[in-house]
Design a protein around this nucleic acid. Sequence first.
DNA 1: ACCTGAACACCGTTCAAGT
DNA 2: ACCTGAACACCGTTCAAGT
Lengths: 236, 236
Amino acid sequence: MAEQTKAARRTPLTRDRVLRAAVVLADDIGIEALSMRKLAQELGVVPMALYKHVANKEQLLDGMVDVVVGEIEPPVAGADWKSAVRRRILSARRALVGHSWAAQVIRTRSGPTPAVLAYMDSVIGMFRTGGFSVDLTHHAMHALGSRMMGFTQELFDASPGPDPRTRPARPQEDAGEYPYVRELAGAVAHDEGSVVGQGCDDQFEFEFALDLLLDGFERLRRQGWSSAGRSGGRTT
Amino acid sequence: MAEQTKAARRTPLTRDRVLRAAVVLADDIGIEALSMRKLAQELGVVPMALYKHVANKEQLLDGMVDVVVGEIEPPVAGADWKSAVRRRILSARRALVGHSWAAQVIRTRSGPTPAVLAYMDSVIGMFRTGGFSVDLTHHAMHALGSRMMGFTQELFDASPGPDPRTRPARPQEDAGEYPYVRELAGAVAHDEGSVVGQGCDDQFEFEFALDLLLDGFERLRRQGWSSAGRSGGRTT
DNA sequence: ACCTGAACACCGTTCAAGT
DNA sequence: ACCTGAACACCGTTCAAGT
């Protein structure tokens, strides 16, 4: 009877339930604080029970990425390549927003998960059907880098983290040091936030850089650019 | 006498010696395997001895970043803004190459260390003296993001890591899935490496994207671009 | 056959006891 | 006053003992 009460208290564990709980927990307490033990506790389960559904923590992280990436809206049909790619990337950005850990976790995976691969495939397809050569598409994908998935490629994580006390004190800006940094920080005119990555309109900065790259791609496509003549080309 | 032998066996610990040993150790065993305890052992010292020179592990990582960033060559004088910025960024890239952990560590710092701030100041200065408005400089710095420090902003870490066994098996590419990924991967014509981030000429990809951005900046500068008319502008 | 508690080999860091 | 061993509160994961 006692066991029955315990068993009934929770719907049975599934891989999906484990992954979704992990996503929520990481959203709440941050990715660096997410542990197998805390996740188990959150699910009202003994730690070892998780290992029936994920082989190890790495696989848990892979699964979490797939949950988030799976929420990206499907591509819209019938548009020129540039607005199609632009919309797809901005919709990826919308899906990943709110999961501040996602960028870092995706980047530290040793390879793409199936959902990421499917997403990449759709973006590559937009370039190809838009008249890009395989060669130029390849370099465009590299140039986009993780911006392809909607991450801002800032120098520092904008996420304040759970413990603002560990934040290093703003360096002495009263001294004449870093005059250009000061000028720029002053012009942004936000009293809070780090020099780069905060106190700014992230969405604007993201689209600014994205459009700069997309316009560059379009220019190269029109002039039939190819990497064939690059220095030190194919040696094999 | 015994103590004297022990004391003489090692030159006395300094903050600098601790940081340099940490850099070498991270290069060797990877950043995720670097621990205070292993570092102490490497230095022939009890773990707690390190805490005389760094307050905690976070400060150790800050110090490691400064060691690496401090090795970036100083800027060259007397060039147009574009080649000056280009050279500075490529020299940062040279300094960080070989420290595959540096990109990730810099990004996860909650703010810039002094050496990073000094570097950023010099880059910002190049834009400003090159005729860029504060406004455009600001957005250009965001668009460069961590590429400003010479990182490739790839979607996945190219570093294979110490344990290639944990690498997820390449997804089934025999099936008709991911046709565009397959086409692109085939064209790159390297049998080893992940879809994006490996088996490619990293330096070429880096310069390709960098030049695309720099050319875009120059175009905007010439036409006197300003963000003043942006949608939903300053609301305060 | 399934589940799970204890245990193992780590971590960063505190703190009190030694010199 | 300085240094440091043991201890604390964690980790991911193994494994053998229980049902």
